[in-house]
Every structure is written in structure tokens, then in C-alpha cells.
């Protein structure tokens, strides 16, 4: 009877410990998930910001992204320090892993920004070439708009009338 009682108590203690462990693990898992999501967001922001400055200049975009990455890194390190201050050894190790992941995300962001820089340069070249092609089209377009061979007096008068209305609206005293 006594043996059975002891066994029950031991099992109950184990069950309680197991329950506590599960609660701890679940909590830890949720925190890590949150952090990973934050790091992913930081990486995303870094990429988006790089894209935002894409059309200004590729070098500027690269520098900007580099700065953003540095700022992100700094923010992550500071957060880590804060977390580590209040953590046990186990949590320290786990968070160190998370930091590694975060670093990977930042590295990826930097790698992507370098790619963006490269692409931006290539794209600039393409845009320039397209503009040259388009300039010929633009001249044709303008010519077509304004120098139609069969421009009748009525056509001329219609355009002049449209333009004189613009002039009147611009300069008429209110």
C-alpha cells in the first residue's frame, strides 16, 4: 500500500514537472517565433527601403541599405543584451541561436541589396537605352500630333480655339 502511495506521489511530481516544462517550452517557442518574425520584418524593411531608393541612384540605395542594416543590427544587439540580462543560461543559448538566424537574415538582406545595386545599374542602362529608342518614337508621336500632312484649316482652328481657352483661363482677371 505504502509502495503504491510513493509511486503515485512520484508520478504526480513527474507529471507536475512535465507540465511546468511544457509550459516553459511553449512560452519559449512563442517568444522565439515572435523574434524570428521581427527579424524577418527587419530584413523585409531593409529590402523595401532599398527598393524605395532604387530610382534615385544605385549607389545611394546601396549606401542607404547598408546604413539601415547597420541600424537594424544595432537595434537587434541592444534587444539581445536586454533579453540576456533577464535570462537563464538555457535561454541565453537559445537566444544565441536566434541571433545567428537574425544575422543570417541581415546577411541575406545585405546580399540582396548588393544584388539590387547590381540590378539597378543594369536596369539604369536598360532604361537609358529604352529612352533613346523612345525618343525617336516621341518625335514621331509629336510630329504625328502636330504635323499631319492633311491638317485642314478646321483642324488648325480647333487647336487654336482650345489653346486660346487655356490662355483666357490663365490670364483672365478674376
Amino acid at each position: 500500500m505504502i509502495n503504491n502511495g510513493i509511486i503515485i506521489i512520484i508520478l504526480a511530481v513527474f507529471a507536475l514537472l512535465w507540465l511546468l516544462l511544457m509550459v516553459f517550452v511553449i512560452g519559449l517557442y512563442r517568444n522565439l517565433k515572435k523574434m524570428t518574425s521581427s527579424f524577418a520584418k527587419l530584413g523585409y524593411i531593409a529590402r523595401e527601403d532599398t527598393k524605395k531608393y532604387f530610382d534615385e541612384s544605385s549607389d545611394k540605395a546601396y549606401e542607404m541599405n547598408k546604413q539601415i542594416s547597420e541600424d537594424n543590427k544595432k537595434a537587434i544587439v541592444e534587444t539581445m543584451e536586454q533579453v540576456l540580462k533577464n535570462s537563464s543560461v538555457l535561454v541565453k543559448e537559445t537566444i544565441a541561436e536566434a541571433e545567428k538566424d537574425a544575422s543570417k537574415i541581415i546577411e541575406n538582406a545585405q546580399f540582396e541589396s548588393a544584388n539590387i545595386k547590381k540590378e539597378a545599374k543594369e536596369e539604369s542602362g536598360k532604361i537609358f537605352l529604352r529612352l533613346i529608342d523612345d525618343s525617336t518614337q516621341a518625335v514621331d508621336w509629336a510630329m504625328e500630333q502636330y504635323l499631319k500632312e492633311n491638317y485642314s484649316m478646321k483642324d488648325h482652328e480647333e487647336i487654336i480655339e482650345k489653346l486660346i481657352n487655356i490662355y483666357v483661363n490663365e490670364y483672365k482677371k478674376s
Binding site: R130, L131, D134, S135, A138, V139, W141, A142, Y146
Partner: peptide, 12 residues
């Protein structure tokens, strides 16, 4: 003409 070209390029 220049104005129309500019607006054309902008759109492009």
C-alpha cells in the same frame, strides 16, 4: 514641342 516631349518621357 519640348514640353510635350517632356510629358511624353515622364509618362514613359
Amino acid at each position: 514641342f519640348v514640353y510635350y516631349l517632356n510629358s511624353y518621357f515622364k509618362k514613359k
